[in-house]
Simulated assay, not measured.
Amino acid sequence: MARITDKIETLIRSVIEDMSYELVGVEYIASGKHSILRVYIDSDNGIGLDDCEQVSHQCSSIFDVEDPIAMQYNLEVSSPGVERPLFHIGHYQRFLGHDIKLRLLRPLNGQRKFNGAIGSVSEANNSIELMTNTGSYQLDIEMIEKANLVAHF
């Protein structure tokens, strides 16, 4: 069964790309009437408030017609920021060697949260190798609930 975020990405991807933005990903945080639908966008020139407003208006128009989420929610359009979320295998390839933090859907060896560097990426297996202080882990992308780059200043 397709996730709601996959359906939403399909609905808005071409419109966002036609506006010369990259659709980084979509998060849906269900919390009753306080639910949040967060759309991350990026561009070569960076993202400002005006960019977020323009994309928000376009997405709102699409969602008014398509109604992909039956319940009440707040739409947020945002830049990915310095601790950029990673959604797809291509994101992991793009940031190969970078440090990330991630949370798994289910524990692996009694642990759900991991920090480490992306050691390798396998498109064929839809997986990454995460190099940590305690060893390396082969993780299927579908096992990852949330992943973000770690900013070093």
Rank of each mutant, 00 (worst) to 15 (best):
M1E: 11
R3L: 12
I4G: 00
T5E: 15
T10Q: 12
S14R: 13
V15R: 15
E17G: 04
S20I: 06
Y21N: 04
Y21T: 05
E22W: 07
V26S: 11
I29C: 03
I29P: 01
S31E: 09
G32T: 00
K33W: 02
K33E: 14
K33I: 06
S35P: 03
L37G: 01
L37T: 02
R38C: 11
I41W: 04
S43F: 11
S43T: 13
S43H: 12
D44W: 05
G48M: 05
D50F: 09
D50E: 14
D50T: 01
D50K: 14
D51I: 06
C52P: 09
V55C: 07
Q58V: 09
F63R: 07
F63C: 07
F63L: 12
D64F: 01
V65S: 11
M71P: 00
N74G: 00
N74S: 07
L75Y: 05
V77I: 04
S78F: 09
P80H: 09
P80M: 11
H88N: 10
G90W: 11
Y92E: 04
Q93A: 00
R103D: 10
L104R: 03
R106K: 14
P107T: 09
L108A: 06
N109M: 06
N109G: 11
Q111T: 13
K113G: 01
N115V: 15
N115K: 14
I118H: 07
I118R: 02
S120G: 01
V121H: 08
V121A: 07
N125E: 15
S127K: 03
S127Y: 01
S127I: 04
I128T: 02
I128V: 10
E129F: 10
E129W: 11
M131E: 14
T132I: 07
T132N: 04
N133A: 14
T134W: 04
S136T: 10
S136M: 11
Y137T: 00
Q138M: 08
Q138H: 07
I141S: 01
K146I: 02
N148Q: 14
N148T: 13
A151N: 08
